[in-house]
Amino acid sequence: MKFLNTTLAATVLAAAVVAAPPQLPATPAPVQDIVFAQPFTLDRGEVSNWRAERPEITSGYILVLKVDPDLVYPRQTAEPVLYVGDTTAQRLNVGYRSGHVVAVVGADITGEDALDLSEVKIWFGTPELPERVDANRIAQESALADAAGIKPFSATKIDTLLGQNETLDEAAMTGILDDVASLIRRFSPQEEELAVSYDASSGQASGS
């Protein structure tokens, strides 16, 4: 089929590109702010698919991060990976419209190996599938972030945030999803549909 006659074609070509997705920002890129942090523990751990080693998560932090929206524009191609210290974080919403990402990072929250959020960088690294990111890759990305001058948030800020929330003790990952749903409603209300699905997941409704 001939699309257009010649005259119209010239007009049409001049009007090309009507809705291009935003360009990917350069990485490494720091998150702009951390606005919420809460530790959690799980009686029954859940394997995380967000890094190659597939660790089991039994504790960690729920975070809300203010970000450059273009970093989290939903793409099918590789997206910037969100890192917290020496691991990847699970993004539980999109956050493009609000500029706020709700994330879970698996970590020890007590003891010698406990993750101190005031001592680790939080940043977006090179676009990749998180499931392919292993410890070596994280080390490489961390070095790039260091070279880019990305720094941890202050201890004061972290302490203030953590002081606002008690540790969540839940039986399983689904148990924290109602809290995640609340955070989405608070920080990324454009994603109400997603919050509803987390309500359903945490409610454990079945077959009805």
Binding site: E46, M173, T174, L177, A200, S201, S202, A205, S206
Partner: peptide, 18 residues
Amino acid sequence: RIDTYTASFPGIPGSRNQ
């Protein structure tokens, strides 16, 4: 239509179980 219900099966993440 059933708008949403939970699928509990080994390996399905809790956050992706609808």
